[in-house]
Amino acid sequence: MAEWYVRQESETNPDFGSIPEKRSVEELLEKGMVLIDKPFGPTSNQVSTWIKEELDLKKTGHFGTLDPNATGVLPVGLNSGTRINDALAKADKEYIFEAETEEAKDKQEVKEALKSFRGVNKQVPPEKSAVKREEREREVYDIELLEVEDRKILGRVECESGFYVRVLIDQLGEKLDTEASMKELRRTREGDITEDETSTLQDVVDAYHFYNEGREKEIREVLHPIEKGIQHLKKIAVKDSAVNAVANGADLGSTGISKLQDGIKEDDMVAVITLKGELVALAEARMTSEQMYSAEGTAAELQSVHMDPETYPKRWKQ
């Protein structure tokens, strides 16, 4: 858990903005997200489209594609909530996979083979992928063998976004001198969102129907503010007096910072938030945490603004 450091004590005015979790259902439907436990069968796009139609939305978009035969964590942005795609789709992922080999292999041999994938891996995306088939490098942060039973292998992998587990299994077969194929794949985490937080498609549709009948309890359990999708990013909280400038597209100056998290490196994607926890903008750090704490200058350059500029009043001199 990242630690917070206070650059300058500041209070937030309750008359402006709102705590994300206390937004109205209407606001969450306009700029929020649902966390779907994707079922086996449909594509990620089909799941997204189905939510759009069932919830009477203008636009939806999923963050991080899952194959039709894969299940698990699939965040879906609602209306303008789709605009945080860059932050969440590129987040680290965790998967549980089941592979099957043509020949039964010794448990210790499989364990050592899997361990060898820890670190940076070279992969060529599979033929059915939507991206260009060029060799690229992706990191595996952790990988472990959960179980071996005859020719079946159950494993877990934590990896960088864009890592293909299907390719991993092909390469595992090569290391074990046999053929290996993927039988099941489940995404258990994306960024800081885990499978325990997801809802089924039916849960979401039922909750929306109850909402149309005047009940909010169920839909509040499945709707989330967009801030849910930036939990994994390092954050910089700005003073109320700086919010309007940033929401109008101004790069963040260090003097506008009230507090910040440790571990920020130059060029990191960071979330610029209010003292109430509202996402103002996504930005690219131009200083480290240490520099932001004490130096003057541009702390972060904006990539995208996610707050209406009228939310907080102007506080800077023209």
Score class of each variant (00 low, 15 high):
residue 66 L to I: 08
residue 229 G to W: 04
residue 89 A to K: 15
residue 10 S to R: 03
residue 180 A to F: 09
residue 276 K to A: 00
residue 157 V to E: 00
residue 220 R to A: 05
residue 50 W to D: 13
residue 95 Y to S: 07
residue 129 S to Y: 11
residue 55 L to I: 07
residue 32 G to R: 02
residue 184 E to N: 12
residue 212 N to W: 08
residue 187 R to A: 00
residue 109 E to A: 14
residue 161 S to R: 04
residue 283 A to F: 06
residue 269 M to S: 01
residue 152 K to L: 11
residue 89 A to H: 11
residue 52 K to T: 10
residue 262 D to Q: 05
residue 129 S to E: 11
residue 148 V to C: 06
residue 151 R to N: 15
residue 310 E to W: 09
residue 184 E to W: 12
residue 35 L to H: 07
residue 281 A to D: 01
residue 154 L to S: 12
residue 76 V to M: 09
residue 285 A to F: 04
residue 206 D to E: 13
residue 80 S to F: 10
residue 49 T to M: 12
residue 189 R to K: 13
residue 34 V to N: 03
residue 150 D to F: 07
residue 115 K to P: 00
residue 204 V to D: 03
residue 309 P to G: 04
residue 312 Y to V: 00
residue 23 R to V: 06
residue 51 I to R: 06
residue 65 T to F: 08
residue 92 D to L: 00
residue 305 V to S: 08
residue 317 K to D: 10
residue 154 L to D: 10
residue 97 F to D: 07
residue 184 E to I: 02
residue 185 L to I: 04
residue 129 S to R: 14
residue 301 E to T: 15
residue 222 V to G: 05
residue 102 E to L: 11
residue 17 G to I: 03
residue 65 T to Y: 12
residue 219 I to T: 04
residue 151 R to V: 13
residue 266 E to N: 09
residue 99 A to T: 03
residue 250 A to S: 13
residue 11 E to A: 14
residue 224 H to N: 15
residue 280 V to R: 00
residue 77 G to W: 06
residue 32 G to K: 05
residue 116 S to N: 10
residue 87 A to D: 08
residue 300 A to Q: 09
residue 157 V to C: 02
residue 52 K to Y: 07
residue 176 L to Q: 00
residue 32 G to E: 07
